[in-house]
Amino acid sequence: MRTRGGKYIVISLKQPPIPIIKDDPDEMEVIIKCPYCGQETKVGLTYMISGFVGCKNCYFEEGGLFDTTMYLKRFDYPSYVNGGFYNEGYLANKKKWKERKKKIEQQY
């Protein structure tokens, strides 16, 4: 869904509209900056988890959006619900991953 002027695209109800870098008649081919890591990507190559959107660069990476979201859902539910981790961004959460991974391993 595009907002007036065709300069933004909405890809999540939890996030504000995202500026379009390169428009395309096919909305899946529109180029945006990933709202989590900032890398340029096609809208059709984004992934969502719990309303948070990432791209192939930051979603599947160890300590990326999927890992961080699932960790917080299990170990820090208030932070998961609040969503503040998402605003911290990919690099900040990736740096925290080693500590988080230790906590996960201690559970098993």
Score class of each variant (00 low, 15 high):
K102D: 07
I49L: 15
I31E: 09
P35W: 08
Q39I: 09
G63E: 02
V43S: 06
W97P: 06
T3G: 13
P17V: 03
M28N: 14
N87A: 13
G83D: 03
L13R: 15
G51L: 02
K33A: 06
I32Q: 00
Y36R: 06
E27A: 08
G6H: 05
D24P: 00
Y77C: 00
P78G: 07
G38V: 04
E29H: 05
M70L: 14
K101D: 04
G51I: 00
Y8D: 05
M28Q: 13
N93C: 09
Y77M: 02
I18C: 09
V30T: 08
P25A: 12
G83A: 09
F60L: 07
E88H: 01
D76G: 00
Y80H: 09
E27V: 12
Y90K: 00
L91N: 11
Q39C: 03
Y36F: 15
K101P: 01
G83F: 07
V43A: 06
E61I: 07
I9T: 08
L13W: 04
I104R: 06
I9A: 01
C58Q: 04
E27Y: 05
M70N: 09
L13V: 10
F60S: 11
F52K: 10
Y71S: 00
E105D: 15
I104V: 15
L65E: 03
C34E: 04
Y8E: 13
K33H: 13
S79M: 08
E88F: 02
F66E: 14
E62Y: 11
G38K: 07
I21T: 08
I104C: 01
Y77P: 04
M48R: 00
I20T: 05
M28Y: 04
W97A: 06
R2Y: 14
E40R: 09
K102L: 11
R100W: 12
G6E: 10
M1A: 12
I104Y: 03
K22V: 07
G44D: 09
S50H: 14
N57V: 11
E29R: 15
Y86I: 04
K14R: 15
G84E: 13
Y90S: 05
P78Y: 13
P16D: 12
M70P: 01
V10D: 09
G54Y: 05
Y86P: 08
N82T: 05
L72P: 03
D24Q: 02
D26G: 04
D23P: 03
L45T: 02
I104W: 10
T69H: 06
E29K: 15
K101R: 13
F52S: 00
E105Q: 14
P16K: 14
I20H: 11
G38Q: 10
L13E: 15
K56Y: 13
K96S: 07
Y71E: 03
Q107Y: 10
I31L: 14
N87I: 03
I21S: 11
G44L: 12
G6Q: 07
N93E: 14
I21Y: 05
G84F: 07
E62F: 15
F52N: 05
E40L: 05
M48E: 15
